[in-house]
Design a protein around this nucleic acid. Structure first.
Lengths: 198, 198
DNA sequence: CCTACCGATCGGTAGG
DNA sequence: CCTACCGATCGGTAGG
């Protein structure tokens, strides 16, 4: 509650923002505490006063991302079309914030190794995304809104894979890739009802 | 033609193999010449006798990958079903060689930055893959083998994205992801004829 | 190809 | 939060 606490929280937020930016440019292992600290306006020893190790800072970056996504996705939505629309909205948000996509793609590729400190985070992240989308596809199947012959679980897996793959291609050659349009069209192909009715 | 030349080529091949392995584990920037050299059985200074800089070694790794893919894909195939079958076969080959997938995914994520020495390589790689697959979808459309309403260019983009995205999810949680099966089913969904007739 | 070295940079710590 | 420092490691070079 004191001013000291508030200032500390703001400073920590600045450090986390700077860290996310540098992770996007250099990856986690390639990011130096000195570069992150410089962008936050302190020394690298000062950074280590707020976050005792390099890994603790990574954990803070991932925690903040989860918190932001939770707000945006509104966990409250019941399985169904609305959940899928929110994933499209997430993709729309991402293409307007390239930095978010960069840090996410870089960390995901680094973290395939079980030795990477963010491995468990991404394994859980993928599992939750697949489960959430699979539940929605299952719900749509029961109401006849899923195209016949489409397997809900496999569709969920491919939908998540498509989001990720489109992001890397879009980052590499932005002019040639319409990530949101492609994602929306692919999803619509799986449905018998309009995803976005006019 | 002399034995000296042959030995030099074999040694260079060993270095390139070791480099690809370390890139897969640590990424390009995270890979040290000393670690690569150790696996090839020489010192890091000895490595620099064969490849003058770290970037020159990366170029050699990418060149060899292109050469291997060219052999496997048999550039000769005319646009159509056979080209698509070969991409499925490539995915089958990849899941039996996890190391190949690791190095490819890590480098692709690193190389989204225009400053990365492999950026031009991946931009070209994506463009060529999209073009090749788009040509095949266009050919299939003319013979009625592409499902009506499917846009050939957009389908090509999503097919490439799906291959990449499935690989990262498979690397992260291998037990939960059937990369080849998902890819094959997604592709079959776009067609009016069986991709693999019984 | 190796030994030996260079300047630069890394994450982390001591002490205040 | 900073100054000052630690041992370790980096890519690259000199000289053979």
């Amino acid at each position: 509650m004191s001013e000291g606490y508030l200032k500390g929280r703001i400073r920590r937020d600045d450090i986390v923002s700077a860290a996310a930016a540098v992770y996007g440019e250099a990856g986690y292992h390639g990011a130096s505490l000195r570069e992150i600290a410089k962008r936050a306006g302190i020394t690298h020893a000062g950074l280590l006063y707020h976050f005792p190790t390099k890994e603790a800072l990574l954990a803070a970056v991932l925690e903040r991302r989860d918190a932001e996504d939770a707000v945006r996705e509104q966990l409250s939505a019941p399985p169904g079309l609305e959940v899928l629309r929110r994933f499209i909205a997430l993709a729309e948000h991402n293409v307007r914030h390239r930095g978010i996509v960069e840090v996410y793609s870089r960390l995901a590729a680094e973290a395939v190794s079980e030795a990477h400190p963010a491995h468990a985070y991404f394994a859980r992240h993928y599992r939750e995304a697949r489960d959430s989308i699979a539940q929605s596809f299952h719900a749509l199947a029961e109401t006849g809104e899923l195209r016949p012959g489409v397997d809900p679980d496999l569709a969920a897996l491919t939908f998540v894979a498509l989001m990720d793959g489109l992001q890397v291609q879009w980052l590499t050659t932005p002019t040639h890739v319409d990530a949101v349009g492609s994602l929306r069209l692919s999803l619509q192909t799986l449905l018998t009802v309009p995803l976005f009715p006019n």
